[in-house]
Design a protein around this nucleic acid. Structure first.
Length: 406
RNA sequence: GCGACUAUGGUGUAACGGUUAACACUGGAGCUUGUGGAGCUCUCAAUCAGGGUUCGAUUCCCUGUAGUCGCC
């Protein structure tokens, strides 16, 4: 295979679709959920376990691996997959998201999913909270060239530009990676959303150029452009159109949404994207959101929620999320989710995992993370099969009914 | 048996004689969407008993009770 990536859609029903994505490290049946392994590890879950539960691809982060252990360590290990002993396909995120999560949003009550709080800010480009900055030594300043930030490890000063991000991602060597973008808080005003979106487009062109100039990387790695535009449908459409006009191998839809905005943003953007290239929904999501994305025509999803909430003692079940730290689970000797079997976690009871989490035993986090990852992978597997069988809408409706019924 | 010391939420510790008895852990509830987070937020919960001094006692005095240590 000469191209780094090939993609074919085999089933289409309305906007939703199923297909196969082929990389140098194997095939990915889409739609697919991508476990997040930020620092070249999926927290608490061994590669063998990932494989056993049907994970097809993992995603690591440029920002984190650049700071620690440094991209050269990963490169000299033979690339991300070799380094982490994962034989399948890999992806890396560009570090752009950290501009958002460590910069303007850090220390505030803003997350990827908007809750409606106001985000006070100076008009302009330097975005950080001075109190937070002094308290945590935190600082991220965006300009048109790139972003300057301090390391959370030692406070040292660093700078990412689109070119630098691509250079690092070449060193990390994942099969697919993302252009460097700016993700804004959903609470930012329209003018700033547009300004950030335009900047993201310029950065996309620079990212693409930097990648195409590296001929050997070009053969091995695929680059995805990222659609932004906040919660504004006209911006979403414009961003999708603009990004689609560039020669990317695939597309990510990024940014932050309120729960209600998600559908609209997808509907505005997706029709502008080419049919024949994969679409990745960045940072999404929870089970119901993933089904929404599939229904709208997304192919790939990554999200930290499964491992994060698992690590802290909450599990997905067919009947909604259960907080195992709750008193009611102390003597609940039933399985984690009677309706979902995850390889490697069969036989563990809610009471047992509740006990482990309460006593801060790491095995509790391991079991819950494994369960949650297996749960959402199985959910997406089921959705894919339903797409092929022509029963996806029913599948989704059934799941939503059960999940919200508790 | 005698002496010394101690007695504050479930646990461990705070509190010049002066607002609503503080903190940590535990317990309970909630949060987490391209992971600075095995994390964060909120919350229930106590002055050993009985007297006395004082305007006012967790604080000072007496008695009782319990515990710890030491001594016959």
């Amino acid at each position: 295979m000469d191209a780094p990536l090939s993609f074919s859609v085999s089933t289409k029903k309305g906007a939703a679709r199923a297909g196969v994505l082929t990389t140098h490290h194997g095939e990915i049946q889409t739609p697919a959920f991508v476990p997040v392994g930020t620092k070249a590890n999926v927290k608490g879950v061994l590669p063998d376990a990932l494989k056993a539960m049907g994970a097809q691809v993992v995603l690591a982060n440029t920002y984190h691996l650049y700071l620690q252990p440094g991209e050269d360590v990963v490169k000299n290990a033979g690339g991300l997959g070799k380094f982490m002993n994962w034989e399948g396909p890999t992806m890396t995120d560009s570090g752009g998201f950290q501009v958002f999560s460590l910069g303007s949003a850090f220390g505030r009550t803003i997350t990827k999913i908007a809750k409606g709080e106001e985000a006070p800010r100076e008009h302009g480009i330097a975005v950080f909270d001075e109190d937070v900055a002094s308290q945590h030594g935190q600082l991220a300043v965006i300009d048109d060239e790139g972003v300057t930030f301090t390391s959370h490890h030692d406070g040292s000063l660093h700078r990412f530009t689109p070119e630098r991000s691509i250079e690092i991602q070449h060193a990390l060597g994942a099969d697919m990676f993302f252009a460097f973008d700016e993700c804004t808080a959903p609470t930012e005003p329209y003018e700033y959303q547009k300004e950030a979106m335009d900047r993201t487009h310029r950065w996309a062109e620079r990212s693409l150029k930097a990648h195409r100039q590296n001929l050997s990387a070009n053969k091995k790695q695929a680059i995805f452009g990222i659609v932004q535009g906040g919660r504004h449908l006209d911006l979403r459409k414009e961003s999708a159109k603009e990004t689609a006009s560039m020669d990317f191998d695939g597309f990510g839809i990024g940014g932050s949404f309120s729960k209600e905005d998600m559908d609209g943003a997808l509907q505005a953007a997706i029709p502008e994207l080419p049919e024949g290239k994969p679409r990745h929904f960045l940072g999404i999501g929870e089970p119901t959101d993933v089904l929404t994305g599939i229904a709208e025509g997304m192919d790939l999803f990554d999200c930290v929620a499964a491992t994060r909430i698992g690590r802290h003692g909450s599990i997905y079940t067919r009947r909604g999320i259960k907080h195992l730290k709750g008193a009611e689970f102390k003597d609940d000797y039933g399985p984690l989710d009677p309706e979902t079997v995850v390889p490697g976690t069969e036989g563990f009871s809610r009471a047992y995992v509740s006990h482990l989490i309460r006593s801060k035993e790491m095995l509790g986090s391991v079991i819950a993370s494994t369960h949650n990852l297996g749960f959402i992978l199985a959910l997406v597997d089921g959705a894919r099969e339903a797409l092929h069988a022509g029963t996806f809408e029913q599948y989704r409706a059934d799941f939503l009914r059960d999940y919200q019924s508790n």
